[in-house]
Nucleic acid binder design. Sequence first.
DNA 1: ACCCCGATCGTA
DNA 2: ACGATCGGGGTT
Length: 183
Amino acid sequence: MRILCKRWRARSLINMRLPRSFFQRPTLSVARDILGKTLVFYGKKGRITEVEAYIGENDPACHAARGKTPRNALMYGPAGFSYVYFIYGMYYCLNIVTERENFPAAVLIRAVFVDGAPPKMTNGPGKVCRFFGITREHSGVDITENPDFFIENSPSYPFEITTSPRVGISEGKELLWRFTVQE
DNA sequence: ACCCCGATCGTA
DNA sequence: ACGATCGGGGTT
C-alpha cells in the first residue's frame, strides 16, 4: 500500500510540466538542468539536447547588453515565458526567460531530438523553430501555464554534459555557456 | 528616413 | 568560406 503510493507519487512528478520555480534560478543551472527535458509544442515533442545561456546586461552577447528595448523587454519579465526573436531575415529562435523579474536572462534552445525525425531537422536554433512552427506569435507565452506549449520533466537516463563557447557571437567567446548532451 | 549588423543555415 | 534576406536599433 505504502509502496504503491510512493510509486504513484514518483510517477506524477515525471511527465509533469516544469514550474516557474524551475526557471526562477541562476541561468547556468537552468541551462544544465533543462537538458534532457522535453519541449512540447502543440503535440510535437523533442528532447532538449543543446542550449546556451544569456545572462544580464554585462554579458556582451546578450540581447540586453545595451539595455531594455521593446525587442528584448520579455527578458526583463518573469521567468518561464517564451522569448522568440527573428534573426537574419529568415529564422526564429526560441528562448525561455530565467531568473528574477527585471534581470534580463534566458536560455536559448539550440537543438532537440525528435523521435522518428532526422536529427538534421532539429539540430540548430532556427531549425527547431522551423520544425515546430514556432514564430513571433509564440513569443511572450507563459510556458508554465499554456496547455499546448510547455517543457515536460521527462524521464531520462544519466548523460554527460559538454560545455563550449556560444555560437555566432563576436564578444563573450571566453565564456563556456553552451551546454550540450553527450550522446 | 537611412544604414548596418545579426544568439543562422545551406552550400561550396 | 560565403551568400541569402530583412527586422531592429542607432543615428540623422
